[in-house]
Design a protein around this nucleic acid. Sequence first.
DNA 1: TCAAAATATGAATATATGTTCATATGTTGA
DNA 2: TCAACATATGAACATATATTCATATTTTGA
Lengths: 123, 123
Amino acid sequence: MALNSEEKLDVCMDFVVHREILDSINENALSDDVVNELAEFFKVFGDAARLRILHALSMAEMCVCDLCEFLGMNQSAVSHQLKVLRQSRLIKYRREGRNVYYSLDDEHIQQIFEVGLKHIMEK
Amino acid sequence: MALNSEEKLDVCMDFVVHREILDSINENALSDDVVNELAEFFKVFGDAARLRILHALSMAEMCVCDLCEFLGMNQSAVSHQLKVLRQSRLIKYRREGRNVYYSLDDEHIQQIFEVGLKHIMEK
DNA sequence: TCAAAATATGAATATATGTTCATATGTTGA
DNA sequence: TCAACATATGAACATATATTCATATTTTGA
């Protein structure tokens, strides 16, 4: 298990450069499960249409038809994106007659936007 | 420009359901530029390998070879991912002899991780 | 009960993204 | 100057993702 700096590795051509650093980083590494869940979570924010939906819903509950008009996208595309957001548990919905009203279901979304905006503003 | 609730729209089959809400949301909508930049920014976090790189670099400066070993990925794949992170200005590098050392270049990365972790832990 | 509206969804297609392979570039020590 | 190492990168390929199209489901009002 524990390699020392004398052992060969197949990753690079020669020796690993900093064994001590690697050991300490491996100790504190996130589990595969956590990393994969995190990636899935952020992936959802990596699409302009979904961001616009989330941002709109942070201001008001909206039905699908409202969102189609706001986004300028057809109903099917919007519904597909809403499904992605639902499955990531970022939004929730309620039915009222023929309409389905969507709203945010995560109090961190605002923070996510803030951090992202800080990054793009400062750079 | 300003539609009232009597006018037809091609997005849905009939009338927009909530004109007032749409108007106020349109007023506060993010610009296309900002939304696209935000999406590009979050897209970078939407990959497990890049998350692991960022998380590792939050603990220590590392050379490419270290990262290959840590990730169990080949050198080319790692370099390609480092390029993505560089271009998003999330990491910086310095050369020291034959090695190139990478480190974080954005003080918001920690916060991004925290918010993401909160989400996956709570749900 | 039936037609029309609002929404959801599967399949197909187009596009974006990640990895690999081969090779180029930059650096060092002999 | 040259060989070997560390890293970067273009092209090809495989996979993932977004959108469209057609159609299914749910609900309401007549």
